[in-house]
Each structure stands twice: as C-alpha cells, then as structure tokens.
Design a protein around this nucleic acid. Structure first.
Lengths: 343, 343
DNA sequence: GTCTTTTTTTTACGCGCGTAAATTTACCAA
DNA sequence: TTGGTAAATTTACGCGCGTAAAAAAAAGAC
C-alpha cells in the first residue's frame, strides 16, 4: 500500500499505466479487458487501493448495480430471515443490496419506493404490505423500475410474483390436524395488518368445506404488528370465556401462536397431543422461534430458501435481458409440514 | 400533477420561474431562501414532482445526508429492534439512513465499512462485532468518518460509545436472585461470538465475589449466532448430566435463556419461583420474545430507547459542529429489572 | 512477414448539480 | 423618495466518471 493518495480515475490510470477509458471499462466489467491489462490494473490496485467514486459512476449510467430490497417489517424475524437470504444472494451476484424497512406503514413504504427511485436501482425485490399498500404508488413504481414482488402478492403488479402457496399449506396442516384429532378452529385478527392473512382465512374456509367440517373463525381485536401480544391477551380472553369451539386451534401465523401458547401456559392448560393435554395449537410459517416454544410449535414451513432464490434469479434474468417480462409469472412454493409438540 | 417530465434542475427552475442556483439553495435548505421564493418553488413542486438527482447532488458535496447504521446481526430481534429505533430517529432528523447488516462476520463488517466509505456518509452509527471485529479496519474507518459506537465498545475507537452498563445490570439481577433464592450459576458459551458476553462474565464473577458466593460458570460448546439452539441442546445436556450446581441459572443473554427454558420444559422440569418448581432461570436483554416464554422470562431490560436516542443525538451534534469530539465520552445506561415468571 | 481481428488509446463531450463572484433586484425602514 | 441590506440572478467553472468515434497498437492466424 503506497502512501500517495489516488483521488480519481485519471490519477489511477496514470499509475497503472493504462488509459482512463480502459480502466473505466475494467471497473464496469473486469472480464471485458485483455488478461494482461487486467493484471496490470489489479497490480496497481494492490499498490494504491483506489475505488471509483460511486456517485460519479452512477450519474451517467443508465443501470446502476443497486438492488432494492423492501420488506414490510424488519423487526419480524420472519422477514429478517428472508431479507437476510435475499441480501446474501444479491451480494453474491455482485450487486449492492439496499435494504429498506417499511415498518408496517403505507407512508414508509411509499417513502422507501421514493428513495429507491432516486437511487436508480437496476431492479427491486419488493415484499409489499399487501392490502395496506398504496396500490397506485406501487403500480407507478413498477412501471419505472423492474420489480419482482415476493411474499405478498398485489394482483397484476410487478414483473413476477414469488410466494408461498397458502391454499396448499393451510390444507396441509388442516388435513394433518383432522387426521390426528378434532378439526381446528381458526384463530386470527379481525383486521390483520400483515399480508397473506386473508388468503389463509379463505383457504381455511375452503378446506373445511371440502372436508365437510364446520368452520369456526375466532377473530380477535387488536391493531399493529405486535402479534405475540395480541395472541397472548386475546388468547387469554378466549380461554377464560370458554370461547374455544374445539380443542384444536390453528393460528393464522406463528407469532399469534407463540402468544397463544404463552396464554395457554399461563392458564395452566396443557398443550399437545398426548393424554392429559387439553388443547392442540398449530401455527403457520415455521418462525425461527417456533422450535423453542413450550411445547414446540407444530406448523408449516414456508420454503424460504426457494422463494429467495427464485425471486433473485427472476430479477437478474430480467435485468440481464434488459427487457420487461413478456408475461407476469406467479410462482408459489409448497410448504411442508413441521410436526412438533403442540399438535 | 402535470404530464411534462422535468428531467433536471435547469428545467425545474424554468417552470418555477426561479433561477437554478436559488433552486439549488432551496433544496439544500428550504429555510435559506425568502418565503415568497420558497412558496413559488413549492407550488411548482406540487405541479411537477421533481426530485434532484441524488448522485449529482452528492458528487460535489463534501457532506452528504447519508447516515450509516451498521448492526452485527439483523436477524436477531434485539438488534432489529434497536436498529428500527435508530432508523426512525435518523429519518426524523431529515437524514437518509443506510442500514447495513454484518451478518455476524468480520468479512461482512469490513465490506460494510467499505461500502459506507464510498457513500461518503455524514456520519455512522456502528454497533461493531466487538472482539470479533477487525480492529485496524474499524480504526482506519473511524479516522475518516465521524463514527459513534453503540451497543458494543471497542476501546478508544470512534467519537463516543453509548451502551448498557453490564456491571450494573448483572449485579442487579444477581442481587435479585440472591435475595429471592439461591445464588445463580452463569450459563454461557465458551466462545461467544456476540459483543458484551465477556463483560457479563466478568461482571458475574465480580458480583459473586462481592457478595461472598462461590461462582459457577457453565460454559457450553457451540459456534455461531444460533443462540436458542445452543441454549436448547446444551441446556438438555447439562440437565441430563445433572450438571447444574445450583437451582438458579443466569443466562448470558435472553436468547440462550429461551433455548434453555425450552430444554427445561422438554425435560419436564418446572421453572419458576413457586412451590413445585425445580429451577429458576433468568436472562439478560429483555428480548422481544422474553415475555412469551413459558414461563415468562425474568430478565434485565436494556434501555433501548435511551441508547438509540443518545447515539443519534451525539452523532448529530458532532455533524452539526463539523468537528471531531474533543474527548471520547462513554455513556452507559442502567438496565432495569424485569420480574416475570421464571425466577 | 502480412493480413485480419481484437483491444487499447486519444480526443472530446456530456451528465446534473454545487458553488463562487459579480451584478442586479427586492425589501424594509427612515 | 432615498438609502442600505438581504436575497436573487447571471455567468462560469468544476466534480469524477461514462461513453462515443476515430486512430493506433497489439494479438492471433496463415
């Protein structure tokens, strides 16, 4: 490492003995210059540690190397986990991920899209709020920037959608629950803020209908994203009021189930399959914490990895082709049953 | 909203009837232009929705409006939560937060610092990996960019450090445990990857010494950040092997405790204070999930909000002054006891 | 060694904005 | 109305790089 500070590409080109346009070419794609040239540049790079100014680079380029990643609520471990997966894949592909957190609100989601717009990203991976999203904003954004939706679908928006097959996953867990005991009631928020909740509700109703069982919706009050708290307090209330129509409860998501399990524990109700158990509880998502609840939570596992991979792959294919999608593909991955102690 | 697309400040200045340099001045600080001028610009802004090109803006400015936020592991709800707090404060201050996730590795942390450097941030809020950090990299970075460390200290680096007082918090919980039952053993990883773990170990030893109790360290194997899994599997092992020297266990952090509680449940050991309980377990951090464990987890609560506020405030004070800190202040916030069911 | 193709160099312009200096205009009080 | 000051305009340059076109040089084939 030399002590001379290189302040721009001109100077770096000088010390490396290569012309500036060729150096520029190298930084855009090292493979685009002759091997001997590449080696000379890389040798100089070791001696001087120069990095092109990112603002100057992006000013004239139509396509930056930025990839936006927007998730609805990053404090939710489920989204943190999928964001982490996506981020790693983007880095591996040689792009710069820009991770943005909508913090559960439409306002922040719109702000995020605005920020992304001014960053001129090559593409965006967007997990929208869903129903709560500002459809026209998202639509306008998708028109300007190649955007792949994941986790939560908004009909007709974006180049593609990759998510989980809620019909399949809900049917899967209901089938299991019915095989192993009473048909489940469905525990959910009356007005859920999170994506996919309505999909799961209707999947529940459809599946119960198909199996010839009477559906029971337990719709509780509560606002915001503090699902465990809602599952806990409303779970307490339901249990106290003897509001459970069956001994089996399927929660709309694992976070509600975590709260619900905690409530059952506090109320002294044993949860599980065995003799002496008063209740069975199942969730949905295979939340990172679902394997540490008491008892451990039976749930269905979304195929995180495939969703992340397919989303990133789809976006990069689009970016490489330089075109928009000919048609909007929807890819749904099946979930798998995770049998644990709670049901 | 008009249909004419404004593509640069020149055009926008034209439609607003104001000269470009004045418009530029407005965007840098709306208060710096006369009220009547400001209103004319804002009127035009409503009609045309123009945003200055972020790359061109930052190219010539010494100081961008970017604030870097680096956390060691964003999938950990503890860090997700503190990052969310910090992010909101940064947005409120009119800056652009750039959130970066070190994903637990030195390599990624260094990459993040590199990315930040090329973004020319006005300042950085850095929660480093701590012991695992590449000291010389961080040091070099802090020399170039005003950086405030939080959560995890690296001696002498950065303009200031804001964190939690581990000595106080550990003493607090130990005092409580001793008052209400047997003195605790300390459950931790032999080689913890996370910051603060060593601080807590020595605080445990010091406090036990002060109180005249014999310390018991339960140091378990395991690598990486999957603390719950380690707490669970190693907790199982310890319980099975009757390796508990006392009936009270203080875990180095809540995530270990969550796993440990789950293990105790699986082993059929009742945890809590009451009669019929075989074990007491306490944690540290007031993790978002600690109120939903079974039983709910007694722990100490770090003062998230104050740490976030003070960190952001310290950084902005530095940025405003345009200078570096005269001396490196360390601010430690006391934690508070959160009594729940487990101890 | 010559011819062809690929790569590099030279030259030159533009991106969208920050910013400085000199000048003009607007504002406010007396 | 005048004078003084604060604000806006005009003019002009520069930031660091992308990129296009034409010319020169290097590499590969025969």
């Amino acid at each position: 490492m030399s002590q001379t500070k290189i302040k721009n590409m001109e100077e770096f080109a000088a010390v490396s003995g290569i012309s500036r346009p060729t150096v520029s070419k190298y930084f855009n794609d090292p493979a685009s210059v002759r091997k001997s040239t590449r080696e000379r540049i890389e040798a100089a790079l070791e001696r001087h540690d120069y990095r092109p100014n990112i603002y100057a680079i992006n000013q004239n380029r139509r396509l930056t190397k930025n990839i936006g990643i927007v998730v609805p609520y990053l404090s939710d471990p489920f989204f943190a986990e999928i964001a982490r997966n996506v981020e790693s894949l983007v880095i591996d592909a040689g792009f710069r991920p820009i991770q943005l957190n909508s913090q559960g609100t439409k306002v922040q989601e719109n702000d995020n899209l605005g920020s992304l717009r001014s960053i001129k990203p090559a593409g965006v991976l967007l997990a929208p709020l869903g129903r709560t999203s500002d459809r026209s904003s998202v639509e306008a954004f998708c028109k300007d920037v190649p955007t792949v939706l994941f986790d939560s679908n908004i009909e007709h928006l974006g180049e593609a959608f990759i998510g989980s097959n809620n019909d399949q996953s809900i049917a899967l867990i209901i089938d299991y629950l019915c095989r192993s005991g009473e048909p489940p009631a469905f525990f959910e928020m009356k007005e859920p803020p999170n994506p996919n909740a309505f999909k799961r509700r209707s999947a529940y109703l459809a599946t119960m209908d198909r199996l010839g069982h009477e559906p029971h919706l337990i719709q509780v009050d509560g606002e915001g994203w503090d699902f465990e708290a809602i599952g806990f307090s409303e779970g307490m209330r339901v249990i106290e009021n003897r509001g459970l129509p069956t001994d089996t409860v399927l929660c709309s998501n694992d976070r509600l189930a975590i709260g619900f399990l905690s409530a059952a524990y506090e109320m002294g109700m044993r949860v599980g399959n065995g003799a002496g158990c008063a209740l069975r509880v199942a969730g949905h998502d295979d939340h990172p914490f679902s394997r540490y609840t008491c008892p451990t939570l039976t749930t269905v596992s979304q195929d995180y990895a495939s969703i992340a991979e397919k989303s990133v792959e789809t976006l990069f294919r689009l970016i490489d082709s330089g075109e928009r999608a000919k048609r909007r593909d929807t890819t749904l991955y099946d979930a798998s049953l995770v049998m644990r102690g709670s049901a």
